[in-house]
Each structure stands twice: as structure tokens, then as C-alpha cells.
Design a protein around this nucleic acid. Structure first.
Length: 421
RNA sequence: CGGGGUGUGGCGCAGUUGGCUAGCGCGCCGCGUUUGGGACGCGGAGGUCGAAGGUUCAAGUCCUUUCACCCCGACCA
């Protein structure tokens, strides 16, 4: 992508109506645009980050047998009344609207009801199960207060997986499989296990605990207690002597931390399947309940937390797997030989499958360097009179302060070598 | 929803006890000089001062109502 074709413009100053670092950086760098409190649009840069995150999640969900689906945003009130979740007293953050006829519809805040209902059309036998479905799409929640940029919005991108199992043990096995997949996902996006904790949290009716995936961060809304040696954590909401003992933890080994919840998995039992009449016939011809589980990851929140976490005083510093492009290629000056060399390198990189932003604008060096830093791409390559005289192009990684001049073939091999998966 | 704060060209801000043509920086347009860390000169364009109502000879400034945004708290099925 040529920078001259990107419509975004970077800013030196942070917007006055954002306090959070993630929103300030992402807006300054032109990744997102604020529509209103808790609602953001994504430019090509931001959308590519979202796509990269989604792709990693998709791969891991497919690996555990997930069927990706796309559910409707408009929701059938009847389904939610069946489970008792239409009432504002039961769920108080609905966005609701009306058809011209006057009939009420919901705007999707979650999808247990519709997915369960949809499966009634397809599931009837033990042979049809288990089934795992997942979706990556916008959810709408009428939060009393949106805050912290992408970390708590009213409209946000979420991956939700729902599992439908025949027995509790089948469910339990899958549950653990997803838990492992989650840790893999967070590792792949850059949150390794030194800061990511599977955390015991309140479980609802069907299990003693649910599992949250918490990334340690001072901007976190959650307080958790961490046993670093055992790699275990417990949410403040269930931090009682009884639970600590139940989990085999020792209060003296636990330290209090702030964390951001990036994922949450929990058991649903047969609450929704029974309520909506989704059952299966077992080998002996008997009707049986279906055991459900629910597994969420806040994709846009994850992006916000990545921006919050991977940044320095100059701007964003994306992990290689997440960066919207791998290389920021900048030409300096308007000399014909420089433009020609830069054009050629852009072609060569593109053909080698290296994703690159080519800053072909007529701007001064300082501005191009500042933008390269702010964008946070893993590598910066500079084409200039100076680099050409030294026999090549100047290569610098976003995190290092030193540069080296390398000839084209070597540059191509370096940049396509550590190609992102 | 309780408390605190802020709304002035695209962005960041100033604007005194009400006073006459509403300023500054960035960005934008034109010309010229520049070109390795967000250049400089000259000349331009762009504003219902969040909105509505009121007080006054006169309102960005005072009063009332209202909307939006940020932060703390509560809430987060």
C-alpha cells in the first residue's frame, strides 16, 4: 500500500476527548476514529489489525473443531422471553428497537438464544453431537459508562464460541481444550504466560468457578490475586478463605494485581438448551439434555490492550503477528534515482509477499520517521541518496536504535525470512 | 445513575470585571527557499463560539434549560 493512497493523517497531538493511552495512540496514528463514546470505526490500518487478530483466533477455534457462523444482529424478542432474558430487570444493558409494525426487536448483545434456537433445526440425535459454533462479530451493550477507549465500548468486536455436548464429561474435556487454545491465542498475539493468567472467577449456577483470562496491566478494571509460582490466579469477586483453600492456594503466596479480562469461558449447563427445547435422542431412544458452554474473547478490547501495552514514547510497537504491515518503507528526497530505487524495492517486497507501507509522499525525513515510529510496524526501511551511496537500503527494527545498510537481496531475504504466519 | 471536569475553524488551545472586524499554534491551499528526526518566508481559505431560550444598547463572556465528551464511583447478566 502506498502511503499516498492511505487517506489517514497522523496527528502530533492527542485528542482532547480521550484520556486512555490506547485511544490516544490509535487515533493519533490513524487506526481508529471515534464515532461517539464507546463506539469506534476502524480505518484500513485498524481493520487490518482486527483481521490479523481474528485470523489467529479463527485458526485456533478451527483447530478445536469450531464451525464459524455469522449470526444476525437483530434479535427475536420471543427467544429471549423464553429464557427470561428480555426483561430489563434480568438484562439491563440491551439496546432495543421497534419494527414499523411496532413489534420489538433486540440488537444483539450475546447469542446464546439464537444459536441454540438455530441448532434446533439441525440437531436431534446423539450422532449429531457434539457441535461447536463460533462467531466473530459486533456486539452491542448499553453500558452505563463507556471508558478506556477500546477497552470498554458499547459496540465492540467479540469472538464467541458455544459448545453443545452430550454429557458433562464430554463438555468438561472440550472446556479444557478451549482453555488451552485460549492460552495459545494470547501467546500468539503477544501476551505470553508471564502476564496472562487463567483466573478463577464467579461461576454462576453450573460450576463453582468460571475461568477468566486476565492480562496483567495497570489499566485493568479487575483485581486478581496471583500465585506466580503455580501460575494460578483468583478474581477478587471470589477471593474468600474458603475458595483459596478449595483451590489449594496459600494466601501468603498471593499478590494483588490489576488486570484486563481478555477472555472468559464458562459452563452453561442445559439452562438455554432446555428452555429453548434443544434436546437429543440417545442410543436407547431417550430424550436427553444438551450441555452447553460459552467461550468469549473481546477482539477489539484485545487490540486496545495491545496498543496500551506495546508502545513507547514514539508510538505503537505492534507484535509482528499483529502489525498491519511488516515494513514501513520510506524514500527520502525527491531525487529521481531515489524514487526509482524505492519504487523498485516496493515492487520487489510486494512480490516477495512482504506486506509493506510505502511512504512515497513528498515529506521531510523527520515527518516520515515520526510516522514510521507512530505506526509501530516491525521494520523501517529507508531509501535515500545516502543509503544508495552505501550500496543499499537502511534497515531498522522498530525496537532497536541502530540501523544497518543492506543490499536488496539481503534485505529481501531478511524480511521474507521471519515472515509472519 | 451519583460526584467532578470540559465544549471556541479539521486537531490542540487563548479570549480579563460583558464592548465594537473572535485570536494563536498545528494542519490545509498557492509561490519560493529547503530535504536524515515532525523546516522557513510571503500570501490565502476556513468559525451558527455544542444547542435552545432569556437578560442587555451590546453576550464567546451573565442566567435558565438541554445535549455531548472525559475522569472517579456504582454497574458489567
Amino acid at each position: 500500500m502506498r502511503r499516498s493512497q492511505l487517506f489517514i493523517k497522523t496527528r502530533k497531538e492527542a485528542p482532547a476527548d480521550e484520556e486512555s493511552k490506547n485511544a490516544q495512540l490509535l487515533i493519533r496514528a490513524g487506526y481508529i476514529h471515534k464515532e461517539m463514546a464507546g463506539v469506534y470505526s476502524y480505518t484500513l490500518l485498524g481493520k487490518t489489525v482486527i483481521d490479523n487478530l481474528s485470523q489467529i483466533i479463527r485458526q485456533e477455534m478451527n483447530a478445536v473443531g469450531g464451525n464459524e457462523v455469522l449470526m444476525s444482529t437483530l434479535q427475536n424478542k420471543d427467544l429471549w422471553e423464553t429464557t427470561g432474558r428480555w426483561d430489563d430487570k434480568a438484562v439491563d444493558n440491551w439496546f432495543k428497537s421497534k419494527l414499523v409494525s411496532g413489534a420489538e426487536v433486540g440488537i444483539g448483545l450475546s447469542h446464546e438464544e439464537p444459536i441454540t434456537n438455530m441448532l434446533r433445526s439441525y440437531i436431534s440425535s446423539y450422532k449429531d453431537l457434539p457441535v461447536y459454533t463460533y462467531q466473530i462479530q459486533d456486539k452491542f451493550r448499553n453500558e452505563l459508562r463507556a471508558k478506556s477507549g477500546l477497552l470498554r465500548g458499547r459496540e465492540f468486536l467479540m469472538k464467541d464460541l458455544y459448545s453443545f455436548s452430550r454429557t458433562q464429561s464430554e463438555h468438561d474435556k472440550f472446556y479444557e481444550k478451549v482453555a488451552a487454545a485460549y492460552l495459545m491465542i494470547f501467546e500468539r498475539v503477544g501476551f505470553a504466560d508471564d502476564i496472562t493468567y487463567r483466573t478463577f472467577a464467579s461461576g454462576g449456577i453450573f460450576s463453582r468457578f468460571s475461568d477468566e483470562f486476565q492480562v496483567l496491566s495497570h489499566v485493568g478494571e479487575d483485581t486478581i490475586y496471583v500465585d506466580e509460582a503455580k501460575k494460578m490466579a483468583i478474581n477478587k469477586e471470589v477471593y474468600t478463605d474458603e475458595n483459596i483453600e478449595h483451590l489449594g492456594l496459600n494466601k501468603g503466596q498471593l499478590s494483588e494485581k490489576r488486570a484486563v479480562e481478555v477472555g472468559n469461558i464458562f459452563a452453561l449447563g442445559s439452562k438455554y438448551s432446555d428452555a429453548l427445547g434443544l434436546k437429543f435422542t440417545d442410543e436407547s431412544g431417550q430424550q436427553q439434555s444438551i450441555i452447553m458452554g460459552c467461550y468469549g474473547i473481546g477482539v477489539s478490547r484485545l487490540m486496545g490492550l495491545l496498543a496500551e501495552h506495546f508502545a513507547d514514547e514514539h508510538g505503537l510497537v505492534w507484535p509482528a503477528n499483529i502489525a498491519p504491515y511488516k515494513v514501513y518503507l520510506a524514500s527520502l528526497g525527491e531525487a529521481a534515482e531515489v524514487s526509482k530505487a524505492a519504487d523498485g524495492l516496493y515492487e520487489a517486497l510486494s512480490q516477495a509477499g512482504v506486506s509493506v507501507i510505502y511512504d512515497d509522499r513528498d515529506e521531510r525525513p523527520g515527518e516520515k520517521f515520526a510516522d514510521a515510529d507512530l505506526f509501530g510496524l516491525p521494520y523501517r526501511v529507508v531509501v535515500s541518496q545516502k543509503s544508495l551511496e552505501q550500496g543499499g537500503f537502511e534497515l531498522k527494527s522498530r525496537t532497536s536504535t541502530s540501523t544497518e545498510v543492506v543490499p536488496q537481496e539481503k534485505l529481501l531475504s531478511i524480511l521474507s525470512d521471519s515472515r509472519q504466519d
